[in-house]
């Protein structure tokens, strides 16, 4: 990064102007579309607001209520389980497939697109409906298990297994992480592998001592994004559970509970406070991630 401020060359100044121009649409969008609701929700989080009459200032009451709300605690536990199980699994699958594709197979572009597809579709309502069928009592999964004489449960109907089907749906959307891994793998200089091979490193050692360290910035990036995204997951849980977070709150993801408080129970003030708690949680997790990243993320440019 340039820290010399005023002493920029003409070329650098021109580049900066271009940067501002290219970012302008985004800034315009933030100011015109996002900023208003953002500030409004911050204000509403300190009010008692039911959509039907004017908001009433209640100070920190909504935030105090969160400490007592056992359903909120349940939603947090469900979301944490969902995140900390599905994100590592998804990254592992994405990395494994990226390594496979990186071996230079024919038709790479085709496979890359095919594996990327679920990332585009996974958040859609249609796939949620499909998932209900696939994991139903007479669905594909149980038909497959039936071939081996196993009688599967009603995955989505049973509170003990419903979250598993949601986690699998999330893992299935590994495509975008995979594409980023693939790009990262391409960036690793071939001469590192050659040097390692000359030193007698096996493929496994090469993976451990060359690939993984060189990929750590990418793993870090994918992990941060994965955690943020999974804390915000809504559609899948909404469709798969029929909008209830059921059975028995077993799939009550945080944003689903927020939605039902806001629009089901008309507790819009409380829901706004919940939204800000989510911001804080995601922010803290990301900060923790960045803090620990110094210990394991390796940037080859020396920074």
């Amino acid at each position: 990064m340039t820290k010399t401020g005023r002493r920029m060359s003409a070329a650098a100044r021109q580049e900066e102007r271009a940067a501002w121009m290219l970012m302008a649409p985004w800034f315009l969008g933030v100011v015109a579309v996002t900023l208003g609701p953002l500030l409004a929700s911050l204000y509403l989080s300190f009010t008692d607001y039911n959509l039907l009459s004017a908001p009433e200032w209640v100070g920190l009451e909504n935030y105090a209520e969160m400490l007592r709300d056992t359903r909120l605690h349940k939603a947090l536990a469900v979301t944490a389980t969902y995140t900390f199980v599905s994100v590592p699994l998804m990254l592992a699958v994405a990395l494994a497939l990226a390594m496979l594709l990186n071996r230079g197979i024919k038709g790479l572009a085709f496979y890359r697109s095919v594996y990327y597809l679920p990332s585009l579709l996974g958040g859609s309502v249609a796939v949620g409906v499909l998932w209900r069928q696939v994991f139903g009592i007479e669905g594909l999964v149980n038909q497959f298990l039936g071939l081996f004489g196993i009688e599967g449960p009603g995955w989505i109907a049973n509170p003990d297994t419903a979250l598993i089907s949601l986690i699998l749906l999330h893992v299935w959307t590994f495509g975008s992480s995979m594409v980023i891994f693939l790009a990262g793998l391409r960036q690793i200089p071939e001469h590192l592998y050659e040097a390692a091979a000359l030193d007698g490193a096996s493929k496994r050692e090469q993976f451990r001592h060359v690939t993984v360290p060189m990929l750590t910035p990418i793993i870090f990036f994918n992990m941060v994004l994965g955690i943020i995204n999974s804390f915000q997951t809504f559609t899948q849980a909404f469709v798969v559970s029929g909008g209830t977070g059921g059975p028995s709150d077993s799939t009550l993801l945080y944003s689903l509970y927020l939605y039902s408080e806001a629009f089901g129970r008309l507790h819009m003030g409380y829901a706004s406070a919940m939204a800000w708690l989510l911001v804080v949680i995601v922010g803290v997790l990301t900060a923790i991630n960045f803090y620990f990243s110094k210990r394991w993320v390796f940037y080859s440019d020396g920074n």
Binding site: R132, G136, I137, I156, A157, N158, G242
Partner: peptide, 13 residues
């Protein structure tokens, strides 16, 4: 029907 069948039907609408 089994409880799971009931919950599944219940969730479908």
């Amino acid at each position: 029907p089994s409880v799971e069948t009931m919950v599944e039907a219940h969730g479908a609408g």
